[in-house]
């Protein structure tokens, strides 16, 4: 049967669920950094920059990852925070 309902429902595909879950668990695996600690870290970073910068909270991304550029293979903290305006 043609899946008309499935066509309009907005359930994420199982692969995106897999990807999201993996990303979360790997943060923990790679650094022994719990999700709570990462949340705390995020808050602190945002608190300290919000004094100077008006940022876009919708499109920002703060994560612990491994980069191809870093030869050592050590995890890095990557923060991508779109700037709306500098506060003066």
């Amino acid at each position: 049967m043609f899946d008309l309902f499935g066509f309009f429902n907005s359930k994420p595909s199982t692969k995106s669920i897999a990807k999201e879950r993996l990303k979360l668990v790997l943060v923990h695996d790679r650094t022994n950094c719990s999700p709570e600690l990462l949340e705390l870290l995020k808050e602190d970073i945002l608190n300290s920059i919000s004094e100077h910068i008006d940022y876009d909270p919708q499109n920002m991304d703060i994560k612990i990852t491994r980069t191809r550029d870093d030869e050592s293979g050590k995890p890095v903290l990557v923060a991508s925070i779109p700037i709306k305006n500098m506060k003066r």
Partner: peptide, 9 residues
Amino acid sequence: RGDMMNVED
């Protein structure tokens, strides 16, 4: 179908 991670993922 979107039910398996692809190579890029």
